[in-house]
Design a protein around this nucleic acid. Structure first.
Lengths: 232, 232
DNA sequence: TGTACATCAGTGAACGCGCGTTCACTGATGTAC
DNA sequence: TGTACATCAGTGAACGCGCGTTCACTGATGTAC
């Protein structure tokens, strides 16, 4: 990396912005989102606190940047994992997606907390910029499910969901351009809930220090059980 | 409530301790755990900040108190709901437990966040005092499952879990004094993950403002799907 | 290629705010005789 | 029933720390002619 004297202004700006994001991620890990502080980042940057405002308009804006970056990185990881899996094996593809989610979270618990943990008090994510990146993973799951030829080797009898729920499921089909039947769509949201729950329980330390020696095996077995509801 | 002049010292102390906890819960709701502040509580109490130290030794200790109280309240709510359900209908009892968890979380999102959300940065719960209350709910689920005569109308073929996972499941059986077979025990942890995940997704606002008009119906249908893995 | 001007990065001081915790203290409540 | 002493609740000041954000400023980098 050339030092400041040999870099052009534009290069320097890009480098600074990247460094601020990197430090932001690091502070997330060590102190949590609520304690993310522009002053601390300035300190690590070796720069006076007001200088950071040349690059980032406010603390909340930095949080938004990190949030979007997190959703994007996670979705990229999931996409890559799914694309490595056998195109003809929908169940394996879904499992690959679930495992990619867990791995990403285990590798960076603080960012997982930012995405799927408790909301940051006093901060509201701007929906117009976060919803897109934030729904990429679930959209991918739904697409993989649509590609699955048979919907469930253990097909539930269609229970006739209550009207409001059926209506909500319609709304989802519209939002994601999906045509999955109610039962499968419901099972997809169940898979989603199980993945989020299993991951958060592990990553947020709810499994006591040494309850599970093999959390990845536990996760895989759990998701496998849920998948048996959906896909052959 | 008699005012300070007619209360004895012991009565006053009990009233103050209760009020501090009540205000602590209120601050959790409005500002989140990371921002829980003894000074703010003192202000609401109408008392100088140092006075709070007559009742609570430190901020972290108050957090611990609230954590234990939260686990206890949640477990009490679950116990009450289960006991209202038909003793002969294990599936209905498990569903009652799940719905009690969700209701409790929806009624008090901040306490749910304290229990099952992102860890509070810089705070580590003292295991010796929190593990007991913190495992009451899952212990209850396991007991209800043990009472179930049949283990699964959709019994999974016993997959022969990998050795480490089987070992972990053994450890759980020991910890909770349970004798459920591997497959059922695994399904119980899956149920647990799904309940935590579905509840957190709803309570932490991951379902966009108006994605689901009937979140309770969604939850019920999801849990019902998972229960079909376990109990007839 | 050189000069004049505009843009930009970073400084340092300041505003006003919040926090946890300690300490010596006053005055009221409770207890032992 | 009354007095002497111990306990306790609450005060107010202080220590040392952190934060976000604004502002006028200097000096270096880039651009137009």
């Amino acid at each position: 990396m050339p030092d400041a004297h040999t870099r052009t202004r534009a290069e320097n700006r890009r480098a600074m912005e990247a460094e601020i994001r990197r430090l932001g991620r690091a502070h997330l890990s060590t102190h949590g989102a609520a304690a993310l502080s522009l002053r601390a980042i300035a300190r690590d940057l070796g720069v006076v606190s007001s200088a950071v405002y040349r690059y980032v308009p406010s603390r909340d804006e930095l949080l938004t940047l990190l949030l979007i970056e997190g959703y994007t990185d996670l979705a990229d990881a999931v996409d890559a994992a799914v694309e490595r899996a056998d195109p003809g094996a929908p169940r394996a593809r879904l499992m690959a997606a679930a495992m990619a989610i867990r791995s990403w979270a285990v590798d960076d618990p603080a960012r997982w907390a930012l995405l799927y943990g408790s909301p940051v008090p006093g901060y509201a994510a701007p929906a117009d910029r976060t919803v897109g990146p934030g729904t990429r993973v679930i959209a991918r799951l739904l697409r993989e499910l649509s590609a699955a030829p048979s919907s469930g080797s253990n097909p539930q009898p269609d229970k006739g969901f209550p009207a409001e729920l059926a209506h909500d499921l319609d709304a989802i089909r519209t939002e994601f351009g999906s045509d999955l039947p109610d039962t499968t769509l419901l099972a997809a949201t169940t898979l989603w809930a199980a993945v989020i729950g299993a991951t958060s329980l592990e990553v947020f330390g709810q499994y006591g220090a040494d309850t599970f020696a093999a959390p990845e095996q536990l996760f895989t077995a759990q998701i496998d059980a849920v998948l048996s509801l959906i896909v052959g």
